[in-house]
């Protein structure tokens, strides 16, 4: 119910402001935001933070209005962006490309019309189109996790790794993880794809547990996968034997870290709130003379029981 209303509200607010434009003294701006729809946990969180940021900015800057479009595939995202430009006359576009290749030339066309372009998370395949690039740090994501493993395991200890959906993003993370534990003597028994999915991760972990007698730690690389992994471990009754590091900072997992769960010592952030960073910076660039062009890489941080509180967002769906 809630999110529908917010969509309507955003659209309504945008229409009203456009209609009332001549009455206001300040210059009016419209910002288009195009993001993938909330099909899994991380994107759910991203949608949540996008709406939060838009609500907050509309409050702060009455001269700003927003068009939010969520798309289920790359084709629809292209259509949405074209519609925004044609019918809403946007002044800036914040886009999280569904896929890099298909979105590159449509976004380039937007840029050629003199519209400010902010690209989030996934880069376009041609460099230099965007005015501002905001992203999480995938290499850092793997490295920070790997460093924790290297610090806390002995030489000869065994780990298993669950990978995401086969993509360059997943490769970057896994390569960085492997590089970080290189030379520590940690033995990676196996890596299989859990597709960032709880059920798949559950099945893969069940099989790892049947296959290996001795596992000291699991890099689940994602909190949805960590949930499936933890369940498989507890089914096998091997709770005390190993710990699990997930990633991305899902609220349930962060809560358990806060509570000092021995099986979940730490987590690594890859914040869905990066969309808020992108929207805020874009808005700031429009309403003020603050320079915001360039690249803004949000570091992947280690969440520990000590600092977990600052990463805990009980209201977010993720």
């Amino acid at each position: 119910m809630n999110r529908r209303d917010i969509f309507k509200g955003a659209a309504l607010a945008a229409t009203l402001t456009l209609g009332a434009a001549p009455a206001l003294a300040q210059e009016e701006y419209t910002i288009g935001v195009a993001i993938p729809s909330a099909t899994h946990g991380f994107m759910g969180g991203l949608n949540f933070h996008a709406r939060e940021a838009i609500a907050r900015l509309e409050e702060t800057y009455p001269q700003l209005s927003f068009v939010l479009a969520t798309s289920g595939d790359a084709g629809k995202m292209v259509n949405d962006i074209e519609d925004m430009v044609a019918t809403r006359g946007i002044d800036a576009l914040v886009v999280l490309p569904f896929e890099s290749e298909p979105l590159t030339s449509p976004v380039q066309a937007v840029k050629e019309q003199g519209i400010w372009v902010t690209v989030v998370d996934r880069g376009l395949s041609v460099p230099g189109i965007e005015d501002l690039y905001v992203a999480g740090d995938n290499t850092g994501f793997g490295r920070v996790a790997g460093e924790y493993f290297a610090e806390n395991l002995e030489s000869g200890d065994n780990v298993v790794v669950l990978r995401g959906i086969p993509t360059t993003l997943d490769n970057e993370r896994v390569d960085a993880f492997t590089a970080a534990i290189d030379g520590s003597g940690i033995n990676v028994l196996d890596m299989q794809h859990g597709n960032w999915n709880r059920d798949d991760a559950f099945n893969v972990m069940q099989d790892f547990l049947s296959k290996y007698e001795d596992i000291d730690a699991v890099w689940a690389a994602d909190d949805d996968m960590a949930i499936g992994v933890l369940e498989a471990i507890s089914q096998a009754g091997r709770d005390g034997e190993m710990w699990v590091v997930g990633g991305a900072g899902m609220k349930e997992i962060v809560k358990r870290i806060m509570d000092g769960d021995p099986m979940l010592p730490v987590n690594v952030t890859y914040p869905p709130a990066q969309i808020a960073t992108a929207i805020e910076l874009t808005a700031l660039g429009l309403v003020s003379a603050t320079p915001v062009s360039g690249r803004f890489i949000i570091g992947s941080q280690r969440i520990t029981p000590e600092n977990a509180e600052q990463f805990y967002f009980p209201d977010s769906p993720f």
Binding site: T39, G41, G44, G45, N47, F48, P317
Partner: peptide, 11 residues
């Protein structure tokens, strides 16, 4: 389902 879960997970 996605809408019921508000894009997240129903637990």
């Amino acid at each position: 389902t996605t809408w019921l879960a508000d894009g997240g997970t129903l637990s």
